[in-house]
Amino acid sequence: MKAVGIIPARFASTRFPGKPLVMLDGKSMIERVYAQAQQAQLQEVVVATDDERIYQHVLAFGGKVVMTAPHHQSGTDRCQEACSQLPEAFDVVVNIQGDEPFIQPEQINKVIGCFAQPQAQIATLIKPVQSEEELFNPNSPKVVIGAQQQALYFSRHPIPYLRGVEQQAWLGQHPFYKHIGIYGYRRAVLAELTQLQPSALEKAESLEQLRWLEHGFTIVTAVTELETIGIDTPGDVEKALAYLQTFK
């Protein structure tokens, strides 16, 4: 099975314009993501951008990059356009977020490993919830899984609801998982996903993956104990620089 890693990287972020090009201790964020992805079990790593500045920057550090349209609403859509420009030799496409410069190769490999299961059409990572702050944070989506570690539902609210148990005791009574936003897709499935219209559950929770579940696709999960550190706003850069000192 051959896998390609695609890193969507757009310039016009609402909260942090030009984010892929922000420098972190001498290297841009997109270069750090690319370098981490190259250490995983991927046959190729490609940046998918809509901006000439990012395009030229990736070429300058020796990376592979393709230009995609500016109108895409999600990284999934950008991945599909990039995928259409690549050879047909890849079985699996891994969507690696361009704002996570500390993504671990082990995490990418876990996503790829999910496709050893024939029923896996999409794969993603989950992590045990460790604190009440995580559990009740709507910006940290939770996931319920089935007996074969397939995702049953994602929500910004803690699920399941523990009837008869005080909320401060929930973590001690049941294993909760949060979603880590990295995806893998079988190549043909990725093309199908981008043809789907937004669904009712997706609109309710503002979670793209609910569209896929609502249309009957199987999302297999793998558990990781590793945390991801994303950079969403300029204020996150200082935290990333501090983490970088422990990451080296």
Rank of each mutant, 00 (worst) to 15 (best):
L201C: 05
Q80K: 03
R211E: 09
L24V: 03
A40R: 01
S155D: 12
Q168H: 08
E214N: 01
M29T: 01
E225H: 11
Q119V: 10
K27R: 09
Q149L: 15
V92T: 07
Q197E: 12
E52I: 01
K2N: 12
P198V: 12
P118L: 05
K19V: 02
E52P: 03
T76V: 13
D77N: 12
D232G: 00
K239Q: 00
V66Y: 07
L125D: 02
G63Q: 08
A89Q: 14
P105F: 05
E106A: 12
Y185Q: 10
G216E: 10
Q104T: 12
V22S: 09
V223A: 06
Q36T: 05
T14V: 08
F176V: 02
P198I: 14
P105E: 08
E133L: 14
A242H: 03
T194N: 15
P141G: 03
G75K: 08
V129E: 09
G113T: 02
Q39L: 14
L190V: 05
P198G: 06
G172H: 08
S74T: 10
F154I: 09
M23A: 05
F247G: 01
H71Q: 07
I7R: 02
Q168C: 07
W212Q: 08
A222R: 06
A222W: 01
I122M: 00
I182G: 10
I122K: 04
V237Q: 01
R186V: 00
P70V: 04
A242K: 00
Y161K: 15
V94G: 06
Q38D: 06
K19M: 03
R187C: 03
C79F: 08
C79A: 13
M23D: 15
H215S: 08
G164E: 11
A3L: 04
P17H: 11
I54E: 13
E192A: 02
K2F: 09
T76D: 04
E100N: 04
E166S: 04
I126E: 01
V45M: 09
H215C: 07
V45R: 07
Q56H: 14
I108G: 05
K178I: 10
K110R: 06
R163S: 07
Q85D: 02
L152Y: 03
Q97S: 08
C114E: 03
Q167L: 14
V189M: 05
V66S: 06
G181K: 04
V22E: 01
A40K: 11
P198Y: 11
Q36D: 04
Q36A: 11
V111W: 00
A200N: 02
Q149M: 12
I54H: 15
V94A: 14
V22Q: 01
G5C: 14
C83Y: 06
A12D: 00
G181Q: 15
V143W: 03
N139T: 14
L162T: 09
W212M: 05
R156G: 10
K248H: 05
Y153K: 13
